[in-house]
Amino acid sequence: MNARTSLLLLADSRLPAGAHAHSGGLEAAVAAGRVTDTHTLRGFLEGRLATSGLVAAAFAAAAVTAATAAAAGGATPGGGVALGGLDGLDLALDARTPSPALRRASRAQGRALMRAGRAMWTLAPCPAAPHQPVALGVVAAAARLDAGDAAFVAAYQSVTGPASAAVRLLGLDPYAVQGVLARLAGDCDDTAARATARAAAGDLPAASAPLLDITAEVHATWEVRLFAS
């Protein structure tokens, strides 16, 4: 951790990167009656952290390494990158995201994050609308953060986004929800550390949450919804 203020800027929910428009599957879980209170919210967050949170954290970490190599001249814009590069990571995330709605949501957030990142730092060459974890790695590398920092932001955001959506959707006590997040902090740190180690070893996780995949498609058919995903 060598650029603490940059790290805070990147993790801040006020970063204009569109994250507030997404509930991470929570809106669908609330509509289905699966999340109703802080207890069921905690279960939702634990499952999300262990699945899509772990995957996002590992890919963000791997993308820092790939973006650092690309910035050092290891790759040409738009191609020429082996499967370990940013294009390869982006393809590998497609393979880990069977739901078309979640692929769209991830790329929309990736594009928004790239836009915000470009306004702050000089970014490495990258696919045009990358998956969000790839964009996070690219932006983190540009901010001189390391792979572990990017994993840490990804793990953190995998629970804070749905938690704040829960306050808005269910009218839960924001203090109680913040308490849930504080009790998940250790799990979040562990997930980020595990994700960083797996990315460094080239062992990218593929943990999936079937309900998030299925209900993302249910949610995408609604005519009226508060969140984009």
Binding site: A29, R34, F44, L45, G47, A50, P210, L211
Partner: peptide, 12 residues
């Protein structure tokens, strides 16, 4: 597997 039976993964 943390949260495996909860609302994000299998939902019971």
């Amino acid at each position: 597997a943390p949260g495996w039976s909860a609302a994000a993964v299998l939902g019971g």
